[in-house]
Design a protein around this nucleic acid. Structure first.
Length: 821
DNA sequence: AGCACGCCGACT
DNA sequence: GTCGGCGTGCTC
């Protein structure tokens, strides 16, 4: 029989060891090893145990010393074909390592940890060996027990490590690894009737003396099998009674893993009817065709806020479920859109698996396994849920497709859209992106025919688009109003309070960027070379651009109008809430931002309070713009609408337009007409004007010409390489060195229309004691493949030859950056 | 990341 | 002569 060898990717190390290692599978394990199996392997000089996955099976090893694998984990830990394909996609597309990719496609926190123990070798007689005093103490301490490494260190200190090494080498003691999984599946007792018996037989054997046991058996035999937890709901049975009954042979017991389902929010909003109007029906019909033909096709639905995109999604998913297939519904951050979840829950109930950041590890693990086993066919989740092991996919939907949270912020900078499109091609199914304010890139893709565009131009039901009014805050200042609220906003709020209608006030404090602005003339300090606002660096009292090397000192007075109200600006929602409370004394106010929603379930509580009309004014950050649907909200006020425009990033206009439009869209979703008041110091800005007119296309056209002029996406792609390390000079040196290598690669490969900038300090130039420098490369989409190979080579060269010489300098490559912050 | 190997100084 | 400090390089 041929020997079996496996190529194993070890999941522990992230940066350096991005390759597979060849191991031999001992014959005792050969039956249980598959491609994708999770293994335990010995690694390195100390043969420390590590977790890994089989990437390849082969029948010979090209290495002289090939170690044996230690163990294989069960079949439910084997990666599916789809998951393995995703791993290679992530490596290819994002230059990621095996371990980063594997960590994404396996349930989070489901890693094996190893506890280290020591014991004395059996074949050694302790008394007959000569040892130094300390070594004798160690051996005596271990004695005949299994001793945890921790205990040994607690007793002798960690500096006995080398002594332990020697004792192991002399074969006096042995090191033992105990694998422990961090997630323990929740179990329950499954009670089954005795297969060979009937209820009559059992009851006759039991006699009439124990009425409770009779009742229990009746329930069990009626159901054939029942979980202890479910039995307890029907009768006050104890585990002890069950065990006694099983000992008598009346029933069989089995410990089984059970699903742990997260609690779902049930919305008070009862708009669950999904009757499509004419526009919705057209969209549905078009996409349904591709579902039925099982054809990959990317779609973009641009439907105004409140146009009922969710109803279309629900109908599409219904169609997919009818065909026995499964569906992804991606949302920005699910805990932020409980109302949407609630609606899907109403239609699909148990079929839904939910993934979001506030699940407990066990909830997540359980959902993941239910999906893998095919027990749940609809996945609703945020970003990383796209890696849930769903099979036989019939549709992939990304709601609010413009949302930045679809782009990963961790070191593997994947974009949910890329993964969705990859899966769509693999699984031959439509991929649907939906938004009232599509990203510039998606709209561009639609305009060039890559995506099929569908539009819904009116609101669902009787609702009308709200009327938007812009208040020039400079005029307010001139007329003597120094308060945060304009006269108009104050008046309108009071008006709504009198009518018992509700108000949302948003203060856009997106990002933590400080900026320099004039309260008198609205002037904002900008870079002369880029369409980007300057960031204020307090330490050196200078403003810098994150795109070029421009910097400028900040004067005390406004350079435009000379006003002394030229200063650092910044007010948060907390202060705003206080101001509202003192201004509108009788109003019930509640605040919605990341501080007030950090606890599990607190967002749901706030939403529920607003739905029940226990709140008059909801104050919040951009969270209030995300998917909220309150029919009694008729006024939305936006305080300081311009702050997003000063963000030093090429997406500043786009993000601001989206945010303002989205939050405006919270107003007037029911029968009553809605109103929006936008307070601005820069009311002439085209972004604000387009929001006022609900003019998405007008905004798109103007923004596109800016992008074109500055070689930004969608005309060019941007690769960002972010370096960080504690030694600033080394970070600079390495980033310059890497830049040189990349430039050489660019020349060698004759890449055209490519522009490399930097290194320069990142916008956040120092985080956690680490200096951050950035290189950006603007390139044409067609060059991506070649650029990737160049970057791959530079990265490998760095990891093998340069990395160890410097003190922990890392860089993260974002091959397709959607923002440069 | 760890661990081993190796080359150097300090000390029984 | 031997112990241990850390610089360097490998891990199937």
């Amino acid at each position: 029989m041929d020997d079996i060898f496996v190529e194993v990717a070890i999941t522990t190390y992230t940066k350096v060891l991005d390759k597979t290692f060849t191991y031999k599978v001992p014959s005792s394990l050969s039956e249980s090893v598959y491609i994708g199996s999770k293994l335990i392997v010995p690694f390195g000089g100390g043969n420390k145990h590590h977790e890994g996955f089989v990437i390849k099976l082969k029948n010979q090893s090209e290495f002289e010393k090939t170690k044996d694998i230690i163990d294989v984990l069960g079949e439910d830990e084997v990666l599916t074909n789809n998951q393995l394909n995703l791993v290679s996609f992530l490596r290819r597309r994002y230059l990621s390592t095996y371990s980063e990719a594997l960590n994404l496609v396996t349930p989070p926190k489901n890693k094996i940890k190893f506890e280290v123990y020591y014991k004395v070798s059996k074949d050694i007689d302790l008394n007959n060996i000569i040892l130094t005093d300390t070594n004798r103490e160690i051996v005596d301490f271990i004695s005949t027990n299994l001793i945890k490494e921790e205990n040994l260190f607690n007793c002798f200190g960690t500096n006995i490590k080398s002594k332990i090494q020697t004792l192991i080498k002399q074969n006096y003691i042995k090191k033992i690894y105990k694998p422990i999984s961090l997630i323990k599946p929740k179990t329950d007792l499954l009670i089954t009737k005795n297969r060979d018996s009937t209820l009559e037989k059992v009851l006759s054997r039991l006699g009439k003396r124990s009425p409770k046991k009779i009742e229990i058996l009746k329930i069990v035999y009626l159901n054939e099998e029942i979980l202890l937890t479910d039995l307890k709901k029907e009768i006050n049975a104890t585990k002890k009674e069950i065990v006694t009954l099983s000992k008598s042979g009346f029933i069989d017991l089995k410990e089984v893993d059970i699903s742990v389902n997260p609690k779902l929010f049930v919305s008070n909003n009862k708009q669950f009817k999904a009757e499509l109007n004419e526009e919705q029906q057209l969209v549905y019909n078009s996409i349904k065709k591709d579902i039925d033909f099982e054809k990959f096709s990317p779609h973009l639905i641009r439907g105004v806020t409140g146009s009922g995109k969710t109803e279309v999604y629900i109908e599409l998913v219904k169609r997919v479920v009818e065909k026995g297939k499964s569906a992804f519904i991606m949302v920005p951050e699910i805990s932020l859109t409980p109302q949407l979840v609630s609606r899907f829950n109403y239609h699909f109930g148990d079929e839904i698996a939910i993934f979001h950041s506030k699940l407990t590890p066990i909830e997540r693990f359980s959902q993941w396994n239910d999906v893998k086993k095919g027990m749940k066919k609809i996945v609703i989740g945020a970003r990383s849920a796209i890696f849930a092991p769903l099979n036989n996919i019939g549709i992939i939907i990304l709601d609010e497709e413009h949302d930045m949270s679809y782009k990963s912020g961790s070191s593997l900078k994947y974009h949910t859209k890329d993964v969705a499109l990859y899966l769509g091609i693999k699984e031959n199914c439509p991929v649907v992106f939906g938004s009232a304010t599509p990203s510039i890139e998606s709209e561009y893709n639609a305009s060039t025919g890559i995506f099929k565009l569908h539009t819904i131009s009116s609101r669902h039901g009787e609702a009308m688009m709200p009327k938007v009014k812009i208040i020039d805050m400079r005029e307010e200042l001139i007329s003597g109003n120094r308060s945060v609220f304009s006269y108009e906003l104050k008046k309108s709020i009071n008006d709504r309070l009198n009518k018992n209608e509700q108000v949302i006030i948003m203060l856009n404090r997106k990002g933590h960027s400080t900026y320099v602005s004039c309260r008198e003339c609205g002037f904002v300090l900008k870079c002369p070379n880029c369409e980007i606002s300057l960031t204020y660096y307090k330490g050196i009292n200078k403003a810098k651009c994150s795109y070029c090397d421009y910097e400028v000192s900040v004067s005390n007075n406004c350079p435009s109008c000379g006003s002394k109200y030229y200063k650092y600006m910044g007010m948060g929602t907390e202060k705003l809430e206080e101001l509202i409370k003192s201004e509108f004394v009788n109003a019930k106010t509640i605040r919605l931002d990341s501080t007030t929603t950090s606890r599990k379930g607190s967002l749901e509580k706030i939403i529920s309070k607003v739905e029940k009309k226990e709140v008059d004014i909801l104050v919040g950050t951009q969270i209030v713009s995300k998917g909220l649907d309150f029919e009694n909200v008729t006024l939305v006020g936006i305080v300081n609408a311009d702050s997003g425009l000063n963000f030093p990033d090429f997406t500043a206009n786009e993000n601001t337009f989206q945010l303002l439009s989205q939050v405006s869209g919270r107003s007037g979703r029911g029968k009553k007409k809605g109103q929006v008041i936008i307070q601005s110091y820069d009311p002439e800005n085209f972004v604000i004007k387009m929001v006022k007119d609900h003019n998405y296309l007008g905004f798109y056209k103007e923004e596109l010409s800016i992008r074109n002029a500055f070689n930004y996406p969608p005309y060019f792609k941007i690769c960002s390489i972010l370096f960080n390390g504690e030694n600033e000079n080394e970070v600079i040196y390495i980033s310059e060195n890497i830049k040189k290598q990349i430039e050489e690669g660019i020349i060698k490969n004759k890449l055209k229309f490519i522009e490399i900038n930097g290194p320069y300090p990142a916008v956040y130039s120092k985080i956690k004691k680490k200096y951050r420098y950035q290189i950006t490369i603007k390139y044409k989409k067609e060059s991506m493949k070649v650029l990737r190979t160049v970057l791959r080579r530079v990265q490998n060269n760095y990891n093998l030859k340069i990395r160890s010489k410097y003190d922990n300098i890392n860089f993260i490559i974002d091959i397709d950056a959607k923002s440069l912050i």
